[in-house]
Every structure is written in C-alpha cells, then in structure tokens.
C-alpha cells in the first residue's frame, strides 16, 4: 500500500513538472531572452518595478508556440501595461529568471529524454543481438561496451563533445548534444538487457517455439523483447534524470546549446562566479525545479525496481 502511495506521489510530482515545462510558454510571463537592462538582478517578487502597474492573471504577452505548432500569446499571469513582475527576480542582463527556468527546462528535459530514448534503443538492440546470437557478435559487442564503461562518463562525454563541431545553430547543437549523451550511455542498459535475453532464450516456451520453426524475428519480437520491458522502464527512470544532468553539465561548462537560448545548465553557470551566486541566491533557481524532478524520478525508478523484484521473486 505504501509503495502504491509513493508511486502516486512521485508520479504526480514528475507529471506536474513535465506539464509546467511542456507548457512553459503559458506559465512564463516573459520571453526568456528579453533583456530588461534597466533592472538587472532584481530580487524575487519584484512586482511593479516601474511604479504604475500591477500583476494580473491571464494577460497577453510575448508570443510562444505550444508543442512547437500552435502560436499563442496568452499567459497565466503578467503585469498590466507599464508594470513589471519578476517572481524569481532577474539575472545580470535583466532577463526574467522564472521564464528562463521554465523555458530552460524545455531544452534540458527534452535533451535528457531524447538521450535516454536513444541510449535505451541502442542498449536494447545491441543487448538483444549480443544475448540472442552469442558467439563472436556477443564477444565484440560486450568488449565494446566494456570500452565505454572503462572511461569515466563525464570525461567521455566531454571528449565526444570536443570531437564534434561547435559553431552550429542552437537547433543543431541541441540534437548533437542529445545524441552524444545517448550514444555514450548505451553500454549499461545493453549489459543488463543482454543478461535478461540470455536467460529468456533458454526458456521452455522459446525452445518450443523454436522447435515449431519460428523465425528469429518472431522469437525476438514475440517472446524475448517483451521480457525486457520492466528493465527498460526502470532504466528510463534512472537514465532520464542522469541525462538531464549530463545536458546541464555540458551547458554549465559552455559546451551545450549556447546563449541566449536558456537551458538549466547555462542558467546555473553563474555558479562559476560564486560571489554573484552568494549575493543573488535566485541565480540557483533552476535547482528549485530540478530537485523535486530528480527526487520524483528516483522514487519512481526505485518503486518500479521493487515491483519488478517482487514480481519475479
């Protein structure tokens, strides 16, 4: 019962944050790249900086696109004409911190999710092939996986980034970063899945199906791959936060999607000027969202893991 409750709480926290991020345009009162140079480093809850306006619900403001298709300019809240509202303050360029956190999440979370999907897909394909066919294929693929696991992941990630061009448009950089993270992270899921496939292919119903003349493709898709879903789901719960963090670190080091496009990493990069972060704590605002998101994902992953263990045992 407690596990069920935990699953619900963690699931709804994660879902709520994802909704916030997917519809960031609606919740963000300002364009995250718009600079209010007259009011840099405004403290949080600065409302009405100019003196003749007030905060209002459901205002019209900057134009954004929902899910990349529908253009819209309605916002949850904003300032009436002449006023300004900065709920989480502004950064040194006078950009609204709340809008940067929300819209930055789009880059970071999407990159993390794409990377996790890619890593799981590669892991599934390589792990299944290695486990099912065995022999030389298995040997080569697992040696390759060992190679990837023998390097500390952050070094591997940065070196891979170094090997690829860095003067690109934000869109290209985004795809590049997501695919590097995914391509360097496939080894661990591949190993896990190989182990599962090794035991799955020796099951009696698989032998029976083989005896009836089932093709490899049928065996794989019908009997073997479905056995890996549980592990894939648990791994997704572990990998997504890890890869979000990887994107954040790349952007933090200035190797991710560049300014002025916001990402959690580039928003957090003020931490590299510690004195600024000491005096303006709201420079750490992305952590307010990241922490519950990561906690939620970890709780989800561990609950799923326990369930899988209970189910198999």
């Amino acid at each position: 019962m407690r596990a069920r409750l935990r699953l619900w709480v963690a699931g709804s926290v994660v879902a709520a944050i994802h909704v916030l991020i997917v519809f960031a345009g609606f919740f963000a009162p300002y364009d995250p790249t718009e600079q209010h140079r007259e009011i840099p480093l405004a403290t949080p809850f600065t409302i009405n900086a100019k003196g003749d306006g007030r905060a209002e619900w459901f205002t019209t403001g900057w134009r954004y696109r929902v899910l990349g298709v529908v253009t819209c300019s309605r916002h949850l809240f904003g300032a009436s004409a002449g006023g300004q509202v900065f709920v989480l303050g502004t950064d040194p360029y006078g950009r609204d911190q709340l809008s940067r956190v929300l819209c930055g999440g789009q880059i970071s979370v999407l990159a993390g999710s794409i990377a996790a999907f890619l890593a799981l897909l590669l892991g599934l394909v390589f792990g299944t092939v290695a486990g099912f066919y065995g022999g030389w294929t298995d040997e080569i693929l697992m040696r390759l996986a060992e190679l990837f696991l023998a390097l500390p992941w952050l070094y591997l990630l940065l070196a891979a980034r170094a090997a690829l061009p860095d003067s690109l448009t934000p869109g290209q950089t985004f795809l590049l970063v997501a695919s590097i993270i995914g391509a360097t992270g496939w080894a661990r899921p591949a190993r896990l899945i190989r182990g599962l496939v090794l035991s799955a292919r020796e099951r009696e119903y698989v032998h029976a199906a083989r005896g009836f003349g089932a093709s490899h493709w049928y065996l794989l898709t019908r009997h073997i791959v479905p056995e890996t879903w549980g592990v894939l789901l648990t791994q997704a719960g572990i990998l997504i936060p890890q890869f979000i963090m990887a994107e954040v670190l790349l952007a933090f080091f200035g190797l991710g999607v560049g300014e002025p496009v916001p990402s959690w990493g580039s928003t957090l990069s003020y931490l590299r000027q510690p004195w600024l972060a000491v005096t303006a704590w709201w420079m750490l605002a992305p952590l307010l969202v990241m922490l519950p998101l990561f906690l939620g994902y970890h709780a989800l992953a561990s609950t799923l893991q326990q369930r899988a263990a209970a189910g198999s045992g």
Partner: peptide
C-alpha cells in the same frame, strides 16, 4: 537524487 552540482553549489 541530489545532483552533485547542487551539493557543490
């Protein structure tokens, strides 16, 4: 689940 970046910061 606390990222090192947060702990470090």
């Amino acid at each position: 689940s606390v990222p090192e970046l947060l702990a470090a910061g």
